[in-house]
């Protein structure tokens, strides 16, 4: 067994030198790099935290803006809905009013046209009736027809009250006939009227072919229509009244 103190010293110095060299070239730079990386990581983490906070704040702000936009959108939609409803109501009211106006106008025009047509038809019918009556009258016996109408005139006067007949006897009466009456015929008519009134009346005679046939008595306040024309007028009035009732129904 040997123990060399030179070797002991060499090895001790070697180890101490190695400690210094590795401290210089290994432990110090590597630990410095670790420290640097830890500092960098901490800085990055802190920066990331700050950025995260900023991002969260931005997110919250964006959410608020989004909520505000949503509220504004809802308000605008509500306003637009209200406006559209009002516009729609206005347009509907105007359209309804226009429709009512058009319908009233059309109805009035239709009524007017119907009335015009009806009046025209009545006029034509009346004219046709007059023509037919005139042609029929031309084929009848004139004196007999006159006698019949005179008889109906007397009956009409007879249907009056005594007061009315007395009043008629005191006024001037105009006798209108369909054809000219000669003196004989006028005397016969005067006599028949006087008999019906119970007194002689002041008579004037006039002819009107429009009567077609018959005799009528007119005064300032009295008319006794006794002719075919009067009959046709009464028929036309009755038909017009019936037509009005049918339209109303």
């Amino acid at each position: 067994m040997t123990f060399d103190f030179w070797t002991l010293g060499f090895q001790a110095v070697n180890v101490l030198v190695l400690v210094w060299l590795l401290h210089r070239f290994f432990w110090k730079p590597v630990s410095a790099m670790i420290t640097t990386r830890q500092a960098t990581a901490a800085s990055m983490l802190e920066e990331a935290g700050v950025k995260r906070s900023e991002a969260e704040a931005a997110l919250a702000e964006a959410a608020n803006k989004l909520a505000a936009l949503a509220a504004e959108r809802e308000a605008m939609l509500a306003t637009a809905r209200t406006d559209s409803d009002a516009t729609r109501d206005t347009l509907l009211s105007a359209a309804q009013a226009e429709v009512e106006t058009l319908r009233d106008t059309a109805k009035a025009a239709r009524v007017l046209a119907a009335g015009t047509l009806k009046a025209n038809a009545m006029d034509e019918a009346q004219g046709l009736a007059l023509t037919i009556a005139g042609k029929l009258m031309a084929r009848l016996d004139g004196p007999a027809t006159d006698a019949a109408f005179l008889n109906w005139l007397v009956k009409g006067l007879g249907a009056l009250t005594d007061v009315e007949r007395t009043a008629l006897a005191g006024v001037e009466l105009e006798v209108v006939s369909a054809a000219n009456q000669d003196s004989t015929a006028q005397d016969r008519i005067a006599k028949a009227i006087a008999d019906a009134l119970g007194a002689s009346a002041a008579l004037t005679f006039r002819s009107d072919p429009a009567l077609i046939a018959g005799h009528e008595i007119h005064s300032a306040h009295f008319s006794l229509r006794n002719s075919w024309r009067a009959d046709l007028d009464r028929i036309a009035a009755a038909l017009a009244k019936k037509g009005d009732l049918s339209d109303a129904g």
């Binding site: 060399d4 030179w6 070797t7 060499f10 090895q11 070697n14 030198v17 190695l18 060299l21 590795l22 070239f25 290994f26 730079p29 590597v30 790099m33």
Partner: peptide, 28 residues
């Protein structure tokens, strides 16, 4: 002064360690 084999091997180990460390930490 006797130089033992252990000393020489130690020098070699030292050289390897120091050179390796220097090369390793040259480009951290």
């Amino acid at each position: 002064v006797p130089i033992m084999a252990s000393v020489v091997v130690t020098w070699a180990i030292m050289a390897v360690l120091v050179l390796g460390a220097a090369l390793l930490t040259r480009r951290l």
